[in-house]
Design a protein around this nucleic acid. Structure first.
Lengths: 209, 209
DNA sequence: CCCATAACGGGACTCCAGTTTCGTTAATCA
DNA sequence: TGATTAACGAAACTGGAGTCCCGTTATGGG
């Protein structure tokens, strides 16, 4: 009697278990980037990771659940942001980073696949949301600095400004066949700055026109 | 001899064939909205549509291919846009329309599923891109009118302004758990107008800051 | 109205994604 | 360092998604 063991991987997370996890997550990323989310099978991932397929099924069970764990892993690896001294410079740096990531064949495909997976299961969606919350929080300070400098009105929702930079890039990635170039990134940053200056992102009551 | 018949449904598209197609597309929409893109099986769709599953497999074959056809169908049904006389008014109307659609449980889930499907197959992605091209083209004239009025600088990429309205709403739908309310719609419209006025969407060379 | 055949539909069949079983390896603790 | 057992992995198994076969329905052309 007593408790049935908790999920596998939680009691002895060291050594082999950790090695298996990172090998599987690596393989999952590769497979997602290659085949996309739909045509994905866990046995293939197990083969790539040189791990028994039983193990993959036992620890993750479903593709979406594996993607959720992958997102947890991705959220932990954060690139430090650059600081240029001006809001436009900082946001352009951010936009270029996003643009380069999404335009990269492997990373771009991976992000598409991860977003697709998140639309299919609440738990995976939650992991994706957490991932973006972290990224947004990392970059928000540069907008706060602009507020402090007086470049942008007091009361601006700084997180929303960061999201405004990424949004058009993701929208283009998903809904159009246009290429994601540096010009698109710069445009996204410029638009966000212009809108922020005009008070479009004032928190609480909706700003004036 | 001669040609093997073209794809089923093209030679005798009337009567039964058309009835089957619309029943299946309807059922596909329901199933996508309910189960999401991942846990979808064509036999279930056939059952809902009261159609033989052989038929569904013969005419569409895969889920992504069926979604591509669904998108073709969705693209044909267009709502006429409203005209308010001001750019902000028109874009707010557009933003509210998008927001209401995405916030609606069935439609929102359907759009998520359709986007997920498009990330998995080129043909489906193309259908999705065409769908959005049509929607954008439908609304672009209101921006053009604003250019003519002098509300927005000459040389503005009018399609990009329309996309700028939708982008943050889709970005929020996919990457956050925040609710999509009317305030979000208005903010999207206001930001797009502010950025457009500031010349952030000038075509060709990247605009000034 | 009638014929030729496109398209549909039921049911049997296949094949592989996902499960179960049980023996092996190695992480943790004393 | 050795005992305990969590976690792994090979192989056999199973259910249902997707295919195939062939008889039936009804469209479109003459």
């Amino acid at each position: 009697m007593g408790f049935e063991g908790a999920d596998p991987g939680t009691v002895r997370p060291g050594g082999r278990t950790a090695r298996v996890r990172s090998a599987v997550l690596q393989a999952a990323g590769d497979a997602l980037a290659e085949h996309g989310f739909a045509h994905l099978d866990l046995a293939d991932i197990a083969r790539r990771a040189e791990v028994g397929k039983t193990t993959v099924y036992r620890r993750w069970g479903t593709v979406t659940s594996l993607v959720a764990d992958l997102l947890l892993d991705m959220a932990e690896q954060s690139l430090p942001r650059t600081e240029t001294g001006s809001l436009l410079g900082d946001l352009k740096a951010n936009a270029r980073l996003v643009q380069r990531t999404l335009a990269d064949p492997r990373q771009g495909a991976l992000f598409k696949a991860v977003i697709a997976a998140a639309t299919c299961e609440a738990k995976t969606a939650e992991a994706l949301h957490r991932f973006y919350d972290i990224r947004v929080k990392e970059w928000a300070p540069c907008v706060q600095q602009a507020v402090d400098r007086g470049e942008v009105p007091e009361g601006t929702d700084v997180h929303e400004v960061i999201r405004a930079v990424s949004a058009p890039l993701y929208y283009r990635l998903l809904t159009s066949s246009d290429c994601l170039d540096a010009a698109a990134a710069d445009q996204a940053a410029e638009a966000a700055v212009a809108a922020a200056r005009a008070g479009a992102y004032l928190r609480g009551d909706e700003g004036r026109a």
